[in-house]
Design a protein around this nucleic acid. Structure first.
Lengths: 115, 115
DNA sequence: CTTCCGGTTGAATGATTGTTCAACTATACA
DNA sequence: TGTATAGTTGAACAATCATTCAACCGGAAG
């Protein structure tokens, strides 16, 4: 024989049951997109800082020790994903968390790490 | 003047308070490493399938519609992060979730997406 | 022993992504 | 009007990463 076709099923019932509980492919994609935003220490630090108080871009850059540009880029991603919101006051832009799911997700992961 | 040094602080008190509540840099790194594993639809589908029952590599590959190799690579990442565990039975390797933090984290994210 | 099959592995490749840099906008202030 | 500052933007670069491919390991069955 030459070459095996890949997806041979071994345990029909198990795969059938798995198919029934599977979510839509786009749901896994959406979830992945969301988690990817949490998958960077800079963004996590930003989100964690905003858990406690409103902060502006320059202060956030100073806190993390990165450039304003880097912070702005990341805040834009977080804004587009509706994880943070902002409020303009003169030339200052105040950032804060959009909702408290963020806090819950981060806390849950911290629990896992603490082991 | 030539060029501004970046991290000038605007609101001292706010940054000071943020520094006090900040976690150790390595903690943000560890968190990011964990979340990165959730930031891929293939791995999410694997984890979600294993939430409900034990499954073997070939069945998982069939379920996801990817090669055994791809599944094996991803399961290895998940194994190293202690998100899944395995059990060998003859030539079959049965995979399952290592603990239920995984389920909680995914469910929390699903809630956020549901909006 | 030989073949089949579940599973692993490492190198290679293409895609995604975080940061920097430089230029730019807009508000504040003198 | 002119300058300093908060913030944004896009291109470019380096690094990371997911999948494929091919070769391989080890148990099972003939």
């Amino acid at each position: 024989m030459q070459q095996m076709n890949e997806p041979e099923i071994i345990h029909e019932e198990i795969v059938t049951k798995a198919r029934e509980t599977s979510l839509a492919p786009e749901t896994y994609q959406d979830l992945a997109t969301l988690f990817k935003l949490f998958g960077d220490s800079t963004r996590l630090h930003l989100l964690h800082a905003l858990e406690h108080q409103e902060m502006c871009g320059v202060d956030l850059a100073a806190l993390l020790g990165v450039t304003k540009s880097a912070v702005s880029h990341q805040l834009k991603s977080l804004r587009l994903a509706r994880l943070v919101k902002y409020r303009k006051e003169g030339q200052i832009v105040w950032y804060s968390l959009a909702d408290d799911h963020v806090k819950k997700i981060v806390d849950m992961a911290l629990e896992h790490i603490a082991e």
